[in-house]
Write a protein that binds this DNA or RNA. Structure first.
Lengths: 217, 217
DNA sequence: CTCTGTGAAAATGTTCACAGCG
DNA sequence: CGCTGTGAACATTTTCACAGAG
């Protein structure tokens, strides 16, 4: 209905699958596959075909009946929806093992995300460089985030510092936070937080594995 | 109804919140808080009170009306449900930056998870040690997983090797996999997979942040 | 009188099944 | 025909609201 940019309320569940479709479609691109059916895309993305069709229908009717979806065109549409047609400047706070791994993570740069600032509370780390970016103290977060116009912050600090860091990031103008610290963050409504908690994931897994010899589901 | 061990079908959504409640409750324990209301627990866990009560009701009726929940007792009940009253022996495959970070991750050892084997395809890494555990080649996965009776595998390899590694882990007897590789894994029905994809999380965040100046939700 | 436990309502998400476009 | 797009059925999850236990 609205065609061009991004309205049409896309359900959260759909949004969270779009990056998955995107990745699958990019694989098709590499293999020079020009067109895919919902069936084929679904099997690569690990979901079912009805879901793919329903999800894609929220972006508009871009498929061709009897044929499928044009891979290249659909890639562009999804990238557009996800806001991947622009660059994202991110800050990473907390440079322990995980933080360092994130700085070097290829998956970020490959997309349109670039790490533009690093912060750590440890004075011994401040001033050192990782990947050409100098680590600053956490007291510099607000100013640097504002000056460099960063819009996303990644928190990989210990739980105890996470809320403080989050507030500084928000104060600096960040509107999205990816939180790896095992802590619940309180932020203003206009800021979006997503959390990734490794130990929680393992515990969930433990639940299902201990329902031993499969309790199905 | 069944009281003791773990039946009563607990909804997936609830299961994924139990570790969160557990963490919150452990904080209360440290602060020597003996009893919490659903309201208080909810606020620490970052959810709402109705959800806490509904979730906990699936474990049985362990609260006291007019008072709340006994922290220590509830901790034990949840740990029991999650299978955290036993030790979990895990293998990690793929020792790039992320894999190394995982080996050193405190959050694992703190719970009942212990890293008992490490695998990497890179011959230069094989034979070296991290945290006292020797890295083995991926061809050793099946045997070692079986010999050491490991039940959970963590995959932090590049996407291209993930499926192969998964098959070896499963062949060795693992029944739960935590997958950090940006790839969809195909495994037998009795094996549970949970995936954590950093770049997908960032892309989801980008969607909501680019619905700039908040499209709400 | 407070706070749990829970039916019932509302919202969200998934699957089915098929009309109809290309 | 084959495959999309989508209403409608079904399933799961969340929220409401309140009876009643302590």
């Amino acid at each position: 209905m609205d065609s061009t940019t991004g309205f049409r309320h896309i359900p959260e569940a759909t949004v969270s699958r779009l990056p998955l479709y995107l990745r699958s479609l990019l694989e098709f691109t590499e293999q020079r596959v020009a067109t895919v059916s919902s069936e084929r895309l679904a099997s690569v993305a690990g979901v079912n075909a009805a879901k793919v069709r329903k999800d894609l229908s929220y972006l508009g009717s871009y498929g061709t009946r009897g044929v499928g979806y044009d891979v290249e065109y659909l890639v562009r549409r999804i990238q557009e929806q996800l806001g991947l047609d622009q660059d994202w400047r991110v800050a990473i706070a907390g440079l322990g093992n995980l933080g360092r791994a994130l700085v070097n993570y290829r998956g970020f740069g490959e997309r349109r995300f670039s790490v533009e600032a690093l912060f750590d509370a440890d004075a011994a780390k401040v001033g050192t460089e990782i990947n050409g970016v100098v680590i600053q103290g956490t007291e510099d977060i607000e100013r640097t985030v504002r000056e460099r116009d960063l819009s996303i912050g990644i928190i990989a600090t210990p739980a105890g510092s996470a809320q403080d860091v989050a507030e500084r990031l928000v104060e600096g103008g960040v509107t999205g936070i990816l939180n790896f610290a095992p802590a619940v963050l309180t932020v203003p409504d206009h800021v979006r937080v997503r959390k990734v908690d490794l130990s929680i994931e393992l515990q969930i897994l433990a639940f299902y594995v201990s329902g031993t010899v499969t309790e199905d589901v």
